[in-house]
Structures are given as structure tokens and as C-alpha cells.
């Protein structure tokens, strides 16, 4: 590690090096980061980190995978910081601080069937949990993954999606795109529609949902129709964030701070909050 991070102050990042960059889609890249001494901090599935390219800015991202020797961030290009990040090369040093947020309830889900439902970049946070389940395969029962994107090109993590995950024990992967296109003989449907076709059983199942707000909303309705109760449905929320540690104020919904008390909530918890999500 080069810089001299003062880890006593949670708002000051430590420096990590980008050791690999993977082009996922035309506007998503995955950045692998680490330090000479290994990962900058331990992370659990679903937790977050503030990533900064120092002259450009700082933004909150889900840790998409916490490997033993590096962390992965899948980052969509949408503005000042993310544009600049998309232009860096392997070897670049960037800042990270974290881990933030509660993460997924990995222990409480042990012994359950897991149903992961994601749209677009929403697979980034779920992937940390999906890969965690595979790493601890015996602790989880059947695994179903339903993932949709606008087009083939917009599907993230293609190698895992088409090659690695379907090979796992008791695992089914369903992939869909919004509109038919050449070279795609797979499913064409919106995620909520496909979900109702697959009609997964709620028995002993936990559904984990992440995607654009409209997808989340419709998927939650579908799950309810299929008999999932509020405790069986988990989602992760997004609000604008600056500090990540419950101080700067902006990410609140009612008296909860999404950066600290979230971003993961089950539906029963969400229904306790004012309807600002």
C-alpha cells in the first residue's frame, strides 16, 4: 500500500490498486482491487464500499464479490465519477472505505431454498450472496437465479451466468432479455412475467430481489401473489449517500439510515418505514 491511510477516521479512504478490469457490458466494468497486504478490509455479502478516484469523486458501490485476495466492484457508467473510472487502466490506485451496511442475512438463510431475482446492474450486489452460497454450498438448499437485462449485450457476468452457475449442484439459472434479437434463442420477457411463469414455490424459500425500482415493485407484487410472505422477501435499497456511516443525513427513510441500517431489508421491515422507498 502506498498512501498513508488513517484508518481511525472512517471518512478517510485507504488506497488500493486496481489489478484487473473486466468489460461486462457496453456500460458496466468490473474492477478488481487489492493491496500488497491483501484485501483492504473484510466484507460480507451485500455490504458496500465508498470508491473514490481521487480527483474525480467518490461513490457508493456494492461489493460484488469478496474474494480472499481482492474485492470486485461492478460499476455502471452514469456520470462524473463512473465515467472517469471507466477510463482508468490496470495498475491505477484508487481509494476505498468501508465495509458499510448490514449485508445479507447469510446465516438466517442457511437451510433455505434461495431464489435470486435481479435486473440489470442489480445482479452486482446479489452476486456476492450467490457466490457465497456456492462457496458454502451445503448450507443452502436449492438455488434458483432469475436474471434479466435489456439486451444480450447488457447481461453482466456472462461467463458465470452461462457456464459456471448452471453447473452447480441443485441450481437453476433463468436468463431473459426484454426484446427479441438476433443470436438470442433464450427467453424474451420482463423479469416479473418470467417469474410468474417459473412460479417458484414459496416453501422454505427466501427470495432476494434487486434491480431498477419498477422491476422491484412488480416482482414484489408477483411474489406476494405466489404466496411469499413479507419475511421471505429481501431486497436492497439505494439512496444517495455521502458518508456511508449514518452521519451526513441524506440516506434516511424515516429514522433508518440506509447506509448503516440497510441497504438490505426484508419486506416486513420495509413496510414499517414511511413509503419513501
Amino acid at each position: 500500500m502506498s498512501g498513508n491511510c488513517n484508518c481511525e477516521n472512517p471518512l478517510v479512504p485507504s488506497i488500493v490498486k486496481v489489478v484487473d478490469i473486466v468489460d461486462e457490458t457496453p456500460d458496466v466494468k468490473t474492477f478488481y482491487v487489492t493491496t500488497d497486504n491483501g484485501i483492504p478490509f473484510p466484507v460480507m455479502p451485500g455490504q458496500l464500499a465508498m470508491v473514490s478516484l481521487l480527483p474525480a469523486g467518490e461513490g457508493m458501490f456494492s461489493v460484488s464479490w469478496q474474494a480472499e485476495d481482492h474485492l470486485e466492484f461492478a460499476i455502471r457508467r452514469v456520470g462524473v465519477l463512473t465515467d472517469a473510472l471507466h477510463d482508468i487502466n490496470i495498475g491505477q490506485e484508487i481509494g476505498v472505505r468501508g465495509p458499510y451496511g448490514n449485508g445479507f442475512p447469510v446465516a438466517a438463510c442457511e437451510g433455505k431454498n434461495m431464489l435470486f431475482i435481479a435486473g440489470g446492474i442489480g445482479l452486482a450486489p446479489l452476486r456476492s450472496f450467490i457466490k457465497y452460497c456456492f462457496q458454502h454450498r451445503d448450507k443452502y438448499s436449492n438455488i434458483q437465479i432469475l436474471y434479466g437485462a435489456r439486451s444480450q449485450a447488457d447481461l453482466c457476468f456472462k461467463r458465470e451466468l452461462f457456464e459456471e452457475w448452471p453447473e452447480q449442484k441443485d441450481t437453476e439459472v433463468y436468463t431473459t432479455i426484454d426484446r427479441a434479437e438476433e443470436g438470442w434463442d433464450g427467453k424474451v420477457a420482463f423479469v416479473p412475467t418470467y417469474l410468474e411463469e417459473i412460479n417458484p414455490s414459496p416453501d422454505n424459500t427466501i427470495a432476494v430481489v434487486c434491480g431498477p425500482p419498477i422491476m422491484i415493485k412488480m416482482v414484489l407484487q408477483s411474489l406476494e401473489k405466489m404466496g411469499f410472505n413479507d419475511e421471505q422477501v429481501i431486497t436492497t435499497l439505494e439512496m444517495r449517500m455521502k458518508c456511508g456511516i449514518g452521519k451526513c443525513g441524506r440516506c434516511n427513510i424515516g429514522s433508518e439510515y440506509i447506509c448503516l441500517d440497510g441497504p438490505v431489508f426484508n419486506l416486513a421491515q420495509l413496510r414499517q418505514l414511511p413509503p419513501e422507498w
Binding site: 498512501g3 471518512l11 478517510v12 479512504p13 488506497i15
Partner: peptide, 15 residues
């Protein structure tokens, strides 16, 4: 909060 200086691909941070 802190200053930084980027040189090439390296960055240094000072509180």
C-alpha cells in the same frame, strides 16, 4: 478532510 496527490497511477493521501 484530507489532501491527495496523484502521480501517474499512484495516489497519496494526507489527513
Amino acid at each position: 478532510m484530507y489532501t491527495f496527490a496523484a502521480r501517474g497511477q499512484s495516489v497519496e493521501i494526507k489527513e
